[in-house]
Design a binder for these strands. Sequence first.
DNA 1: AATTGATGAGTGAGTAGTCAGGATATGTAT
DNA 2: ATACATATCCTGACTACTCACTCATCAATT
Lengths: 192, 192
Amino acid sequence: MARPKSEDKRNAILDAATRVFAERGLTAAPTSEISRRAGVADGTLFTYFKTKDDLINALYREIKLELADAMMSEFPRKKSVHTRLRHVWDGYVNWGVNNPEQRRVLAQLQISGMLSKESIEAGSAPFVEMQSMIRDAIERHVFRADVPIELISKMLGSWAEATMDLIMLKPAMAKKYRDGGFAIYWAGIARK
Amino acid sequence: MARPKSEDKRNAILDAATRVFAERGLTAAPTSEISRRAGVADGTLFTYFKTKDDLINALYREIKLELADAMMSEFPRKKSVHTRLRHVWDGYVNWGVNNPEQRRVLAQLQISGMLSKESIEAGSAPFVEMQSMIRDAIERHVFRADVPIELISKMLGSWAEATMDLIMLKPAMAKKYRDGGFAIYWAGIARK
DNA sequence: AATTGATGAGTGAGTAGTCAGGATATGTAT
DNA sequence: ATACATATCCTGACTACTCACTCATCAATT
């Protein structure tokens, strides 16, 4: 290895890509603007990512990792299902509200159809613990009997997204929405 | 007026646009492919829609109108809130499952940032009756007291979307998911 | 006859990716 | 320490290509 690639440059490119993608959309964002904002030459972008598609896939994994960290760090393994779900909920909602650009880009990435199977798989890997917690809770009959398992986790995600939308519209109501949102969710899925 | 524009051609273009956008995404879809699939010349597309942006905004309104029709036709005005919400829920979920391309395009449109204020306003106009039903239900204390009003309709949308995703994955479970999804929704918002 | 629609080759703007030449970090030898 | 050799990085002008949109010409409708 004669000259190593710079981790700083790689991060600068991913960072600039996040901002430019958030502003202009995935396909409308020129790689030249990304490299300019990252402070590197046009060509340099392509030594770190072979194609724009590669960059997009790498960014997806990166953001998913950060999100997983926000949701699963200090996860209260020993507490009740209610407490654990609430932890995940708060982590997700707070991450989205505090990182609107990354959230926006993630939403674009997920429906872009530009992600490889490998990226999608790698992106969901950090969330296995959450999945197993939900399975565990089901076995212990914490949830309503008439509700398909898949709905439980799917709805947590979609509902948290909706809650974030509302918080972005009225930031002053953040706490009310976050608490109210989870209360509805829990009332919907929990066995009475 | 020497020669009128053809409603058929307009519809053919919107139809082709739906298919091409669903396959390739909003920005990656060339207008030339849309016109080709619609069976008209490249230039003709631009006599019906001044710009690609115009086409996109028109398509948004069109799809929203169809969706509103699916949700609000035969709306049971006189029945209980539970029945009325269930009607809307079923209309939405069934529309999405039966029109996956339109649903996919609608999702892309909504986060594209390419919609004008006017289009967004026009798109929500057909749903006023639903809004007023919800306001009415709130006044009659059908819902839990600690739930912010905005969450009620927002949640219907986001949970129905989650339900549709699952139905697309396992069509055989459609009924179970549709019923289960609504059960969660109702349990979440209704006063006990 | 007059007006507007339909056509598709053409135009100009913009883009992802390349590459030759210069710069720089690393390993090795002295 | 210093110098050298070498592999890799960095740069930005350049290329080949794509796309939204135009317009001269022809066709259809009133």
